[in-house]
């Protein structure tokens, strides 16, 4: 129950944060979307053994968290399931790729370990960048920005409705769970015999509720073919932010800053 409650609260908190009046929220959504896309492209283009450059890319995330007053710790906490999945994906690397490149003490460091960490960091950074975008931009603004980069309407609508549907779904899960618990107080979790009917009921009820939510949107002028928020063009401040971030990305990606800094001290 607490987990469902927390999930609902997290989604609401993300929504609220996205509509907050922070500095990053005032940057044009198109600019923020483009920056995030460029960041992810540059990040994924790094060689799988280049751990140092991958680490350097974290500077952008630290900067964004400072400007936007966003907590990296909380973000990582919210994304722990995804992080676990990334770890599972990368775990095969040290087993399959065993070329030793150096030793730390007596521990051999293989290319597999390096590539596992690089993959893990790339995944974490890409997810954090997207998460920060969502935290500073409402889903309607993201859809508007997607529209501006000529993403097909049908996909934009799907993105928006799925996002709205998450809350409807979680609330239905919460209701069904409470109803089940009230009549099965000694039961730990859901008995396997009830799984079928609970999931079936959950699907039917959440589809019904999603339908009513969609009707409510339709009755207030929502049209999937024409929907987007009218926004002004990106202002000077947004483009300056874009240019600064672009310069930062180029430096982080193509200039070996850590080596240069390290070279000063050696």
């Amino acid at each position: 129950m607490n987990k469902i409650d927390n999930a609902i609260k997290t989604v609401h908190h993300m929504d609220y944060q996205a509509n907050h009046n922070g500095y990053l929220n005032t940057i044009h959504p198109l600019v923020k979307l483009l920056i995030t896309i460029i960041y992810i492209i540059l990040l994924t283009s790094i060689d799988k053994y280049n751990l140092v450059t991958t680490l350097a890319m974290s500077i952008y995330l630290i900067l964004v968290s400072m400007i936007g007053d966003l907590s990296i710790k909380n973000a990582l906490k919210s994304l722990k399931v995804v992080l676990l999945l990334l770890l599972i994906l990368g775990i095969a690397n040290p087993i399959l790729d065993r070329t030793v490149i150096t030793y730390i003490g007596i521990v051999p460091i293989t290319t597999g370990i390096i590539s596992m960490f690089t993959l893990l960091l790339k995944g974490i950074f890409a997810i954090l960048a997207s998460y920060f975008l969502i935290l500073t931009t409402s889903i309607e603004e993201i859809c508007y920005a997607l529209k501006m980069i000529h993403m097909p309407n049908i996909l934009i609508t799907v993105v928006m409705l799925i996002y709205r549907y998450i809350i409807v779904f979680l609330k239905e899960v919460q209701r069904i769970w409470v109803a089940y618990q009230m009549r099965a107080p000694k039961q730990k979790g859901v008995h396997y015999k009830a799984w079928g009917s609970l999931i079936g009921g959950l699907m039917l009820r959440s589809i019904d509720r999603a339908q009513v939510v969609y009707e409510s949107m339709e009755l207030r002028g929502f049209d999937p073919d024409t929907f987007f928020i009218k926004k002004e063009k990106a202002d000077k401040k947004s483009w300056i932010y874009f240019c600064l971030m672009l310069i930062l990305f180029i430096i982080l990606r193509f200039v070996p800053i850590f080596e240069i800094i390290g070279g000063i001290f050696i």
Binding site: H12, D15, Y16, A18, N19, S138, R164, I167, K171, R209, V212, V213, S216, M217, R220, G221, F222, D223, F227, I229, K230
Partner: peptide, 19 residues
């Protein structure tokens, strides 16, 4: 609960005029 789907009161009330 089915009618209100935006994060804040202002955003929900502004939904129709924006659309």
């Amino acid at each position: 609960d089915s009618q209100l789907f935006m994060p804040t009161v202002y955003e929900d009330v502004a939904f129709a005029p924006r659309n």
